[in-house]
Simulated assay, not measured.
Amino acid sequence: MLRHPAAPRVVAALRAAGCVFAEEEAGLLLAAARDPAELDTLVARRAAGQPLEHVVGWAGFGGLRVVVDEGVFVPRRRTEFLVERATALVRGRARPLVVDLCCGTGALGAALVTALGGEADLHAADIDPAAVRCARRNVAPLGGLVHEGDLFDALPPALRGRVDVLLANVPYVPTAEVALLPAEARVHEALVALDGGADGLDVLRRVAGEAGRWLAPGGSLLFETSSGQAPAAARIAEASGGLGARVETCEERYATVVVASRHPRPGRAPHGDGAPHGPRD
């Protein structure tokens, strides 16, 4: 029960705008506003359809409060599953090298490094300057670096062949389906973070084709996709990247992740949980 004197009118305004979780959102807006005038502005922005995370300036992800600037892709809670799988792969490894490609806010890399107790080296990259500025606010406190540029072109060449875990939250919405996305996404998030080309897998093809040259022996590429795209995505990782791929799912969060690993050198044990390579549903 919200006890703030402005709560009833805020809840009413949000309900009238169609916000399903009006009371919960009202609590966040009330906490974010420094005075009544700012509260009115925040409520008006949310009622007009702006994502709540853009309005309050942050999102909860992986136990962190991640800064989210206007126009930047909002990290989805389902993507926490990807971070959990990455954590399982490298936990216990001495200071792994982590790269967060197509990083957006940098939430994935930040959450992974935090889960590892800060004992990791983090680089992140995005082609969108707004995302890079935002990611630096989330990654810098962890000692990470954020680079601006197109996929691997943004990364320091010295990282080639050394990456233990490559997180790539590539866009995977087919171009023809972008118009079907909720307005919060298609209007308020950068198109480059959503549109994955004709079949939704164009950016993935580029990432998978180069990933093997950047991964350390036994290193892994992890990316999210839809359940329907997963078989084709796994085949792309194997065919174009020469990686052993498997599909992992979390029904509770409707999350599908492909884990594609570079085989370790002969005689060297694989990192992480030692799960077998090869596609599986």
Rank of each mutant, 00 (worst) to 15 (best):
A211C: 10
G267W: 08
G197Q: 12
G218E: 05
A230Y: 03
G196N: 04
L221A: 08
H188K: 12
P217A: 06
G244C: 14
V203R: 05
G218R: 02
T225R: 00
L194V: 04
E248Y: 02
L221S: 06
S261N: 06
G197K: 11
A233R: 05
L201H: 03
R213E: 15
E224C: 02
A245N: 08
T256R: 00
G197L: 13
L194M: 10
L204D: 04
R186G: 11
G228W: 13
G241S: 11
G200I: 07
S261A: 15
L191I: 08
G197A: 12
E251C: 06
R213K: 14
D199W: 05
R205E: 14
A208P: 10
A230D: 03
P266W: 08
A208V: 12
A234S: 15
H188A: 09
L204I: 10
L222H: 00
G267N: 13
E238Q: 15
I236N: 07
A245K: 05
G228V: 10
L191D: 12
D199C: 07
E251R: 15
V187T: 12
L204F: 04
G242D: 05
R246I: 04
E238P: 04
G244P: 03
A233G: 10
L222R: 00
G241Q: 07
A245P: 08
L222C: 03
R262I: 06
A255Y: 02
L215N: 01
V187H: 13
A211K: 01
A260H: 03
R235K: 13
F223D: 02
V247F: 01
L191K: 11
